[in-house]
């Protein structure tokens, strides 16, 4: 009986020792990682627009019913073209805002007349975000001209999945994790155009 009790005590002691060591190891490990994460920042998903090939996967692969990816207009880069190849379908019959003339399947690109300059009408093209499905058709069209339209993950919508489903489906590996403090990536030329305006 006494031997049995000793045996129990020894087991308990060993168990306690292993637990303490285990807890300390876990704490140390977490502390080490916490120190690491102090150096590197928390990350979220974003599209590199210079790598993006507008394949259309963003519209279909997002876990949200309505994709978190939307088209963004860089107004500084937009040349206010008429006709706009991002707005009009190449085979459009009339240059009107009728649905059959538009490239956007949901009519999310809004065309607003601004002024006429030397007989050339100038339009501003806005993205109506609530209608945009992130298919990238307008981005593809706009690339024929200045390429001021580009796709971005909108962070008010993105749920920041641990593994982004679009990133897995992206054929050009344009999706990557970016620091949460700089949540958007700009096209290089869009950035240049914005900076030009900022400096002037």
């Amino acid at each position: 009986m006494a031997a049995d009790k000793n045996r129990q005590d020894r087991r308990q002691f060993l168990g306690g020792g292993v637990r303490t060591v285990g807890a300390m190891a876990l704490a140390g490990f977490s502390g080490f990682l916490a120190g690491q994460s102090g150096k590197a920042e928390e990350t979220i998903w974003q599209i590199d627009p210079d790598v993006c090939t507008t394949c259309g996967n963003c519209a279909t692969y997002c876990v949200l019913d309505e994709s978190a990816v939307k088209a963004v207009q860089c107004f500084d880069l937009c040349a206010m073209c008429d006709p706009c190849p991002g707005y009009f379908d190449l085979g459009h019959r009339e240059r009107t805002t009728a649905a059959e003339n538009q490239l956007c399947p949901t009519g999310a690109v809004l065309r607003t007349f601004i002024a006429e300059q030397a007989g050339v009408p100038r339009f501003e093209y806005y993205i109506e975000e609530k209608d945009c499905i992130g298919c990238g058709k307008c981005v593809e069209g706009c690339a024929m001209m200045n390429g001021s339209l580009y796709l971005q993950v909108r962070h008010d919508r993105c749920v920041n999945c641990n593994q982004c489903a679009i990133a897995v489906a992206c054929p050009s590996q344009a999706f990557r994790r970016v620091p949460a403090s700089q949540p958007y990536l700009m096209k290089k030329k869009a950035l240049a155009a914005t900076q030009r305006r900022g400096s002037s």
Binding site: C78, A79, M80, A115, E124, N146, A193
Partner: peptide, 19 residues
């Protein structure tokens, strides 16, 4: 193509919602 300057029309800026 350069962006035309239009008097009385300021270039809008796109919004980028915070995460």
């Amino acid at each position: 193509l350069s962006r035309p300057e239009i008097e009385g029309h300021a270039t809008p800026t796109a919004e980028f919602p915070e995460p």
